[in-house]
Structures are given as structure tokens and as C-alpha cells.
Deep mutational scan, measured.
Amino acid sequence: MKVIFLKDVKGKGKKGEIKNVPDGYARNFLFKKGLAIEATPANLKELE
């Protein structure tokens, strides 16, 4: 799953980066803790 990092996550990504991460990791950790959001076309446009 492609995500946009909202905060730095040690060993995974830095704020503003767009990366592919495992689906479970994104849903169960990154999204729940507010560390990242899904890289949807709308979210990507908002980032620019």
C-alpha cells in the first residue's frame, strides 16, 4: 500500500515521503497512530 508519511518513522520514512509499505503495517500501526495517510489521488494533490 502506498502511504504518505505525516511524521518521521525511524527506519521506514520521513515526513512528506511517499512509500510502499505492507497493508497490515499501514492499517494497524501507521494509520492508527496518525503517522501516515493512504496515498490516494486526492491526498497526493493536497500534498503538492
Rank of each mutant, 00 (worst) to 15 (best):
G13P: 01
V9T: 04
V9I: 08
V9P: 01
K19L: 10
N43R: 12
K14F: 12
K15Q: 10
A39E: 02
F29M: 07
Y25K: 05
P22Y: 08
K19I: 11
N28F: 10
G11Y: 07
G13Q: 02
E48S: 13
A26E: 08
V21G: 00
N20G: 07
E17L: 03
L30I: 01
I4H: 02
N43T: 09
K12F: 15
K10T: 11
K7Y: 13
I4Y: 09
A26T: 06
I4T: 01
A36P: 00
K12D: 06
N43F: 10
E46D: 11
A39I: 05
L6E: 01
G11A: 06
G13Y: 12
G34L: 08
I37A: 07
D8Q: 04
Y25P: 05
G34T: 02
L47K: 08
R27W: 11
Y25F: 10
T40R: 04
A39S: 04
L30N: 01
K14P: 01
K33S: 11
K33N: 15
K14H: 10
G16K: 02
I37R: 08
Y25N: 04
A26I: 08
A39V: 07
K33G: 08
K45H: 11
R27N: 10
P41M: 12
K15W: 05
G11N: 09
Y25G: 03
I18F: 03
P22M: 07
L44D: 05
K12T: 14
G24A: 14
P22H: 09
E48P: 08
A42N: 11
M1F: 08
I4R: 04
E17I: 03
R27T: 11
E48I: 13
L44G: 04
V21D: 01
E17M: 07
I37W: 05
N43M: 09
K12A: 15
V3N: 00
L47F: 13
A36M: 00
I37Y: 06
K14M: 12
K2T: 14
P22F: 07
G16R: 03
D8L: 03
G24Y: 14
G34W: 07
G34V: 03
G24V: 11
D8F: 07
D8I: 02
V3E: 00
D8H: 07
A26P: 02
K15D: 03
G13H: 12
G11L: 04
A26Y: 13
G11R: 05
P22T: 10
L30P: 02
P22G: 08
N28W: 10
K15S: 08
F5R: 00
I18T: 06
V9S: 02
G34R: 09
M1P: 03
K33E: 14
K19T: 07
T40P: 05
P41L: 13
L6V: 09
A26V: 07
G16F: 08
K12H: 15
M1E: 02
Y25E: 06
K2N: 12
T40A: 05
R27L: 14
F29R: 05
A26S: 03
F31T: 04
K19Q: 07
F31Y: 05
K45Q: 12
I18W: 03
R27E: 09
K14S: 09
A42P: 08
G34F: 08
G24P: 09
A42W: 06
K7V: 15
K7N: 07
L35I: 06
K19F: 05
F5W: 02
K15T: 09
K12Y: 15
K12N: 09
V21S: 02
V3D: 00
M1S: 04
I37S: 04
K32N: 08
D23Q: 12
K2W: 15
K33Q: 13
G16I: 01
K32L: 13
I4S: 01
E38R: 09
K45V: 10
E38K: 10
L35W: 11
V9Y: 04
N28A: 07
V3R: 00
N20S: 13
N28D: 15
L47R: 09
E46Y: 14
V3P: 00
L6Q: 03
R27Q: 10
K19W: 08
K45M: 13
P41Y: 10
E48F: 11
I4P: 00
K14A: 10
L35Q: 03
G11Q: 05
L44M: 11
T40K: 06
K2E: 11
G13D: 02
K10I: 12
R27G: 03
P41V: 12
A39T: 02
I37V: 13
V9M: 04
D23V: 15
T40G: 05
G13T: 03
F29S: 06
G11T: 06
I37G: 02
K7I: 10
K14L: 11
I18G: 01
L35G: 01
V9H: 06
E46G: 12
R27V: 12
A26R: 02
E17F: 03
I18H: 03
N43I: 13
L6F: 03
M1W: 05
E17V: 04
G16T: 02
